[in-house]
Structures are given as structure tokens and as C-alpha cells.
């Protein structure tokens, strides 16, 4: 058994547990800033899982994107929350038991699929440098239209977001 076969499940498991733990903290803490930071750590742990699964480009991209995204989220939290520090201990949930039931049901449903399906043999991945090169070729050749569509969609969302958020002029 090679070193990667031993360490890969270990690190995927450790970072997975961290992602789950911080995911739970997001909805358990009454401080909204802490929630945003917990989500940042959860997303970073997911990025670390990508690195452990040898998808280095996606791992680094995930960590970089989420660091900025969650920092912006924390600012919006402070702006729009009635109690961003969680000092008053407000309960900001509704239909709690139905939500817990739905969450558990969804998890069990997916776990049933995970354990009942025969996934077949595990394949070997290419070296990370080769992966990044092949992804670049994929983006610039076969999946170029999809990539371009994503770009145009981002532009549309930017214009739409600005149009929604801009202050109405008084006529």
C-alpha cells in the first residue's frame, strides 16, 4: 500500500469533519459575524479536501474565492443584521423541527444512494501539472461555449445586481 493510499482517506476525512463541524457552527452560533467566519472555515476545509483529492487547481481556486466571498458576506452581515454580535441572543429560526426533519431525511436519502450503489474501481489521477494543462485545453476547446456562457452570465448578474441594489430616483 503506497503512502498516498494511506494518507489520502485520512486527510479527506479530517478536512471533511472540519467542513461538517464548521457547517454546524454556522447555524448554532448567535453571532452572525461568527457564522460568516464559520462558513469561511467550512468552505476552506472543502478546498483542503479538494487538495487532498489531488484536484489542486480547484482546491486553490476554492480557497481563494471563498476567502474573499465570505469576507464580503461578513460585511453585509454587520450592515443588515439587527443583532450582528449576537449579544441579545435572538432566536432567528422558524419551522425548526420540520427543517431538522428535512435535513436528516435528505442526508439519509443521499447516504442510502452512497452505500447502495456499486461505484466500481477507483481510477488513478494524472499529475497535478498535467491536470491543470488538460483542464486548460478542455476550457479552450470542447467546453469553451460553456465557459463563455458562464462569463456572460456573470456579466448579466452584475448588471442585474446593480440594477436591483441601486437607489430609486425620486421622480
Amino acid at each position: 500500500m503506497s503512502a498516498s493510499e494511506i494518507f489520502q482517506p485520512f486527510f479527506v476525512g479530517i478536512f471533511g469533519l472540519a467542513a461538517i463541524w464548521f457547517g454546524v457552527v454556522v447555524f448554532r452560533t448567535s453571532s452572525m459575524v461568527r457564522s460568516a467566519l464559520a462558513l469561511l472555515f467550512s468552505m476552506t476545509a472543502i478546498g483542503a479536501m479538494f487538495l487532498a483529492m489531488e484536484a489542486e487547481f480547484l482546491g486553490v481556486l476554492q480557497i481563494m474565492m471563498m476567502a474573499t466571498e465570505m469576507a464580503i458576506m461578513a460585511i453585509f452581515m454587520v450592515m443588515y443584521m439587527m443583532d450582528p454580535g449576537g449579544m441579545e441572543g435572538m432566536d432567528m429560526t422558524h419551522q425548526k423541527y420540520a427543517s431538522i426533519f428535512a435535513g436528516i431525511l435528505a442526508t439519509l436519502g443521499i447516504l442510502a444512494v452512497v452505500f447502495l450503489v456499486e461505484w466500481g474501481p477507483v481510477a488513478e489521477a494524472a499529475h497535478p501539472e498535467e491536470q491543470t494543462r488538460m483542464l486548460g485545453i478542455e476550457i479552450m476547446e470542447r467546453s469553451m461555449l460553456i465557459f463563455e456562457t458562464a462569463g456572460v452570465t456573470i456579466l448579466t448578474a452584475m448588471i442585474a445586481a446593480t440594477a436591483i441594489a441601486i437607489e430609486r430616483r425620486k421622480s
Binding site: 461538517i20 457547517g23 447555524f27 479536501m49 422558524h94 427543517s99 435535513g103 442526508t107
Partner: peptide, 15 residues
């Protein structure tokens, strides 16, 4: 891990 994270996210989005 993906299944559990999805369950937590669904709980959060609904609650």
C-alpha cells in the same frame, strides 16, 4: 461528507 453538508445546508435554508 457531501451528504451531511447538504443536510446541514438544507436545514439552514429552511429554518
Amino acid at each position: 461528507v457531501g451528504a451531511i453538508l447538504f443536510g446541514i445546508g438544507l436545514y439552514g435554508a429552511l429554518s
